[in-house]
Simulated scan of single mutants.
Amino acid sequence: MAFTGKYELESQENYEEFLEAVGLLNAKTDHKVVTEVLQDGNNFTWTQTIPNWNWSNKFTVGQECELATMMGSKFKAPVALENGKISIQFPQYIFTAEIIEDKLVMICITSGDKGVTFKRVNKRI
């Protein structure tokens, strides 16, 4: 399934709980996040933007890639694509993304005792 496109936040679940679990509650915003995905085969550029802030990662499916957290810390992790779903193990959570009925659905599940599941549904714009 092709991910390329520009998407705007439509709905989200457990946003504040997720930010609190990963220690980023002070990063909470009421702006609608815009996600832009450029896919060229197994190569991706994934960018999220709100006014005065953006976060971007470039990665290749099937390889260990250097990535950045929302706050800019660098880490290395393998990127998988299985059954149309991207999966990346971030330091504090596992991130998955897939296209469901032309919507970009992203899920982050924190590790540890808190185990918060954050779901974000984005409509194509």
Rank of each mutant, 00 (worst) to 15 (best):
L38N: 12
N26V: 08
V34C: 08
M106N: 07
A77W: 04
V37W: 10
F3G: 13
G62I: 04
A97L: 07
V34G: 03
V79I: 09
N52T: 06
T35Y: 07
T60G: 01
V33H: 09
K58W: 00
L19H: 08
T110A: 04
V105F: 08
I109M: 00
F18R: 04
K28I: 12
I86N: 09
E13G: 02
Y7P: 01
E10I: 04
N83R: 01
V37C: 08
E10H: 11
G23Y: 09
A97P: 05
N42R: 05
K119S: 11
N57M: 14
F59A: 03
N83T: 01
M70E: 05
L81N: 09
A27F: 14
K76D: 06
F95E: 06
V121D: 02
T45K: 12
I100G: 00
Q92S: 13
E10D: 13
K103W: 02
K6F: 01
L25P: 00
K32G: 10
L9D: 09
P78S: 12
C108Q: 07
K114E: 04
S73V: 15
I125Y: 00
W46Q: 05
A97E: 09
L104Q: 11
Q12S: 15
T29P: 13
G72D: 15
K28Y: 13
W55Y: 15
N52G: 03
V33C: 13
K114A: 00
M1G: 05
L19P: 08
D30Y: 02
V79R: 14
N43F: 08
E66R: 14
L25I: 10
K32N: 13
V116N: 00
V79C: 14
V116F: 00
D113N: 04
L38Y: 01
